[in-house]
Design a protein around this nucleic acid. Structure first.
Length: 572
RNA sequence: CGGGGUGUGGCGCAGUCUGGCAGCGCGCUUGCUUUGGGAGCAAGAUGUCGGAGGUUCAAAUCCUCUCACCCCGACCA
């Protein structure tokens, strides 16, 4: 391709809207443009990157026996009502009516559609297992789109769905996808970690996320990892072993209400009463689907709202407002406590249950109660883990310590069980002639997000440094002056030769000064650069340079194809 | 939805407080010179100052309403 015949609008200046380096580079390099919040246009270079990555995904999916299809973006609302997700997914789903006033949803995922597709047609265990996938546009009306393609509202996703007759067969199907995922991300130049995750609105038995660990703030997720045994989980899901020394056998002392003037927060109360944070118990009032519930965690820990939501089986859980807190506790924020709290279920963390003689709010302004004990002074509605894990906590599986790391989620896999086949009636007859619901799995990869995530690692101060596998072109040819016929002829000749040899080339044939071309070349980040200038051309040579290296190799004009192949081999 | 911020030529911004010819840098066009890491000189083009309404002799500037975008939080199949 010739630069003057394609569209690569590079920008010199930093774009204020972009915070992440990867987002900045895509904008400046002329890869993407924003049309509206969270909605991006893919320019020619980006389109090629997407195609490259999508092809890797296709190859690996096909290698595992998955079959590519293409489903519709719109879906009749009834199907989503049938699975209950019409309600549980909520505002994130774009909804609309057609001219007949029929309601439709824009799919953010296709479990409903694909299940409807196969139900009634896949009727025998002999037709299973099956794996259908597509690479298609998704739309999710994210509450806050940000970071360019990392969290867009419209994006491209590869979504695959497996159908199995037995749990053993499902485990095998799931394993194949996990294996494919590791291979896909590896080929795109990233090492990923598979972590346990919450199933969220997807429902089902278990789920994993494929995380690309980053040092920057680009990580929207935090994962907890044990280097010793390999335990890895999303922070929402992570279990942990508490390492604070607690005297669980201490004798229960008499409960006593004390004045704590001006001390409402954990810091203030610990300072005022001269105690450690883990001797306090936080009582946080939540509204779970509009009903109040109190969550009790130890003073040094935070509530994991996902765990809380799951234990309650609620669709939405949010902290109560100060007004609601006063209404239910009779005290301002900071003085809620379990003792004497009426008409509010108490969800108690096991770490609280272990404590003796702890301190809680007294449900009265500027008062706390000390020497409180569970069961003697109040009853728990439920004792269940609702604490948020953090770096430094003990690993739940071994005696080592968990590390907290920033990560970008690039893929996920869900063990759906029979949630969708049950609700939509996707059943088959097993070998005994018995009707069974199909066991399903769902597997996503962010096709537009992943290449941007790759850039968080593959760049330097001058621009992008693509891994060869997903670079828009392998080589950029720069004739330094388009006024110089010998240079232009050589560029044309190499363009032809390389193209014929199956090497993808971009020729910067613009009438620009060398500095502009070099800087743009560094910015758009093709893996190799061929410079054609008078100095070396007089000796019948061109200059070959890898974007990732400083050194320049002089290559005979007749031997460029071989030299590029060799360099490609070495860089891989 | 709550909190904070920004909308001025293609891009980046000043001007707004204190109303008075709409500016700067980059880019763009033309010409000449230049040409191995974002050239120089000269001449030029480009704006409903996000939108609507109001105040005023006069509004980018003041007032009211509204829209969009960005950041923090809630959300994230």
């Amino acid at each position: 391709m010739r630069w003057t015949q394609t569209y690569i609008p590079t920008l010199r200046q930093r774009q204020t809207e972009a915070e992440l380096i990867s987002h900045q580079l895509l904008l400046r390099g002329g890869y993407i443009r924003k049309l509206a919040s969270g909605i991006y246009l893919y320019l020619p270079l980006m389109q090629r990157v997407i195609d490259k990555f999508a092809d890797i995904v296709r190859e690996e999916m096909n290698a595992k026996g998955a079959i590519e299809i293409h489903m519709s973006v719109l879906c009749p609302a009834e199907i989503w009502q049938a699975t209950g997700r019409y309600l549980s997914v909520g505002k994130e789903q774009m909804r609309m009516k057609d001219r007949h006033d029929h309601e439709f949803v824009m799919c953010g995922t296709h479990e409903e559609t694909v299940t409807t597709l196969i139900k009634g047609e896949v009727k025998s265990y002999r037709q299973l297992p099956m794996n259908l996938y597509q690479i298609q546009v998704k739309f999710r009306d994210e509450i806050r789109p940000r970071f360019g393609l990392m969290r867009g509202r419209e994006f491209i996703m590869k979504d695959a769905y497996t159908f199995d007759a037995t749990q053993e067969s499902f485990d095998e199907s799931y394993g194949k996808m996990v294996d494919a995922y590791y291979r896909i991300f590896k080929r795109a130049g990233m090492d990923t970690v598979k972590v346990e995750s919450d199933t969220g609105a997807m429902g089902g038995r278990a789920a994993h996320e494929f995380m690309f660990l980053v040092d920057t703030n680009a990580g929207e997720e935090i994962v907890l990892i044990c280097d010793k045994c390999g335990y890895a989980a999303n922070v929402e899901k992570a279990e942990f072993r508490d390492t604070v020394k607690i005297d669980t056998k201490a004798e229960m002392k008499a409960m006593e209400t004390v004045d704590t003037p001006g001390a409402a927060t954990i810091e203030e109360v610990t300072a005022f009463l001269n105690v450690k944070a883990h001797q306090l118990v936080k009582t946080l009032l939540y509204m779970a689907d509009q009903k109040p519930v109190a969550a009790l965690v130890r003073g040094d820990r935070d509530v994991n709202e996902i765990k809380l939501k799951n234990t309650l089986g609620a669709i939405e859980v949010e902290l109560a407002t100060p007004t609601q807190i006063e209404e239910y506790t009779g005290a301002p924020v900071g003085f809620a406590g379990p003792v004497g709290l009426k008409n509010v279920p108490l969800i108690v963390d096991p770490l609280v249950a272990k404590l003796r003689n702890f301190i809680v709010g007294a449900n009265a302004n500027e008062k706390h109660i000390i020497n409180v004990n569970l069961d003697r002074d109040f009853k728990a509605t439920k004792v269940v883990d609702i604490s948020l894990a953090r770096g430094g906590d003990g690993c739940p599986k071994c005696n080592a310590t968990l590390d907290a790391k920033n990560a970008i989620e690039v893929g996920n896999t869900f063990q759906l069980g029979t949630k969708y086949s049950d609700s939509l009636g996707a059943k088959f007859l097993d070998a005994e002639g018995k009707e069974q619901p199909i066991i399903m799995g769902s597997y996503g990869i962010g096709i537009t997000r992943t290449p941007q995530a790759v850039l968080e690692k593959y760049h330097d101060e001058k621009g992008i440094i693509w891994p060869q596998s997903i670079a828009p072109y392998l080589v950029e040819i720069i004739p330094l002056s388009v006024e110089n016929q010998a240079q232009v002829d050589t560029a044309e000749r190499l363009y032809k030769e390389l193209t014929e040899a199956g090497i993808e080339v971009l020729v910067d044939d613009r009438d620009e000064r060398p500095g502009v071309k070099f800087n743009d070349a560094d910015l758009i980040g093709l893996p190799m650069r061929v410079t054609i200038g008078d100095k070396s051309l007089k000796q019948g040579k061109i200059e070959l340079k890898a974007r990732s290296e400083d050194k320049v190799e002089l290559v005979d004009v007749d031997k460029v194809v071989a030299a590029i192949r060799e360099l490609a081999e070495r860089l891989n």
